[in-house]
Structure formats: structure tokens, C-alpha cells
Amino acid sequence: MKNYLSISRLGIDDERFAAFEFTGSFDSVGFKHNFTLLQAVLEEHDSEYLVFDFGKLTFINSRAVGFLIEAMNFLQESNRKLVLVGADGLVKDVLQTTGVFELIAFYPSLDAFKVSITT
């Protein structure tokens, strides 16, 4: 099956957080193809917040949700936080339905998140 997921770092000059943009379909295939990158994302950035921008994500399934929970737990061990921004439509529905938003902070956009950590 073809991998339709790409992950890229957003070039933002703020040492408080590192942001990564997810594009495409975050399913089992996408997870498997990007596994090394996802691990590096979690381990190599030591800023207080790790932000995943899901604004360009079109699909997400339970495998990806499982990764988000693992990522959240991993970051919590070093007092860091995972933040989700930008998800809408089907992706937001899935995250809402599975209760992810009860555990992981969500903002409608990256700008909204930046405002929240500034105030």
C-alpha cells in the first residue's frame, strides 16, 4: 500500500516549542513509513511543547491515535507536552470521538496556540 503521509518541520524561531506539519493520511502505512522520523521527532527536540499541526491531514485512524497517546506519555516523562493544532473535519471528529482531546491540548491553529503560551 502506498504511503501518503509526509511530515515536515515548520521553521519557527521560538525555543519554547517545535512544530511539525503532517500532510496526507495518517494511517498504519503512513505510520510505518515514517516511524524513524516520528521517533526522531520525539527524542531530538527538547523544547517544552511539541506541536503537531494536523491542518493538512485528511485521514487518521486508530493506529495514529495510539501513537499520539504513546507520544504524550513519552513527553510527559520529561515534563514536556504534546499539543495538536489545526485538525478539522474527519480528523477532528476521530480525535474527538476517541477522547484524545480529553488528554491532549488542542488549538484550532498554530497562532491560537502561540497566543495561549504568550498570555
Binding site: V65, I69, T97, T98, G99, E102, L103
Partner: peptide, 10 residues
């Protein structure tokens, strides 16, 4: 909505 949070998350 069925609501709630998946079993095993918390």
C-alpha cells in the same frame, strides 16, 4: 455521540 474516552488510555 458515544462519548467518553477509549479504554486503556487513562
Amino acid at each position: 455521540m458515544s462519548g467518553g474516552i477509549a479504554l486503556g488510555m487513562v
